[in-house]
Design a binder for these strands. Structure first.
Lengths: 207, 207
DNA sequence: ACTTTAAGTTAGGAGCTCTCACTTTGACAA
DNA sequence: TTGTCAAAGTGAGAGCTCCTAACTTAAAGT
């Protein structure tokens, strides 16, 4: 029983009348479609087709389209944070290497999941207002602030730490947008991202 | 005759059966609505209501919704470029002040017209593909590259100039996104944008 | 086994994009 | 000045979307 349920849960499409875990199935369908067609271009109808249910089914699990997108975006934020945390593994605390690792992972996420990244940060009105999403973003930024503080030899997040962290975030954030778009990234010519990030960390943490 | 026509041209709404300059009227309506409701949330139907014409009228002037948005975005790119160029007025060539002026103006545009800014750079699939829009973006970036070259004492756009210019662009671009969003900007704490930009120019143009 | 209820369904309203066939009217030539 | 034509409007409607309402299925607990 429990086993059969688990197998069902992981499936995108349903088998019988009931899906097993339609909520998760729709979130996964949403993720796939947002990557495929972009944050605009996504439709609930498409997600229903992909999950193999009728177009009315989602409304048993989500209030509306926006809530469905927010649920997917939230999982994206968590992946984003977890990957950033994982990238710190084995790098000495207080060294610039930790800053560049975070930046690198931030940008890698934007490159690997451009649809989700743009959805989360590109200014889609619906998602901007969700408090859980905002809180998740703040949590991730807090990680950055902690690392900046350590690099600057501060034990607390001072105003200067916050200022530097915000500048670093802005930089990496902007690079993510530029690099996730082929029409923009080629304007940068031939460059090595790791080199740029190292250069950045040196310049921004100096003094 | 010519005068009456000009008066009509500047009007958003039509007076008689014919509008006078519906194309321009729709572009202006589109701009207003994109600011009001965000790039998503915009509908051709709304623009028609605002311009006072039937919902079939736009298709005499634009192939589809996308082309209408692109036309509006194009004017936004031109405003963006013109304002950046104007901001250089009276600042000595080859000084970092010209870089900070460009950056400041870039961000100001994002703050003054967040809807248009996000539409142009937030990764809306339809617009990304338009070659005229891409070319306009490249033209604006070329201005930045020229200033960076002058600051670094180069007479040409070398690979290093391009790299630094791209980094500066990335930074200002990211800050624009963060500052245009109240939920992000407050994470930066209390800070003075001019001070940050000066700091940035010093750090990024050093060496 | 029976009941309850969560989770599906079909049907349909309202709004959107866009097309088609039609109407209006300004511009230009005779 | 008048007649014609083409540009620029119109209403009607097809096909899509999101979402609701009322109905049906079947899973879970007593």
């Amino acid at each position: 029983m429990k086993n059969a349920e688990k197998i069902k849960s992981s499936a995108l499409r349903k088998s019988g009348y009931h899906h097993g875990d339609l909520r998760a199935g729709l979130i996964e369908a949403t993720r796939q479609l947002v990557e495929e067609k972009g944050p605009d271009g996504f439709s609930v109808t498409d997600a229903c087709r992909l999950a193999g249910v009728s177009t009315a089914a989602p409304y048993k699990h989500f209030k509306d389209k926006s809530e469905m997108i927010v649920a997917m975006a939230m999982q994206g934020m968590e992946r984003h944070r977890d990957m950033m945390l994982a990238s710190l593994e084995g790098i000495a605390v207080g060294t610039p290497g930790r800053i560049t690792a975070l930046g690198r992972q931030y940008i890698d996420f934007a490159l690997n999941e451009p649809g989700v990244f743009r959805l989360n940060f590109g200014g889609f009105t619906d998602c901007l207002d969700d408090p859980a999403l905002v809180a998740a973003g703040e949590g991730t930024f807090a990680i950055v602030l902690g690392e900046v503080a350590a690099c600057l030899g501060e034990s607390q997040v001072t105003e200067e730490v916050r200022r530097r962290g915000f500048m670093l975030w802005g930089f990496v954030h902007g690079l993510s947008f530029l690099m996730a778009d082929p029409k923009h990234v080629r304007l940068g010519g031939e460059f090595d991202l790791d080199h740029i990030l190292d250069d950045l960390a040196v310049r921004m943490l100096a003094n």
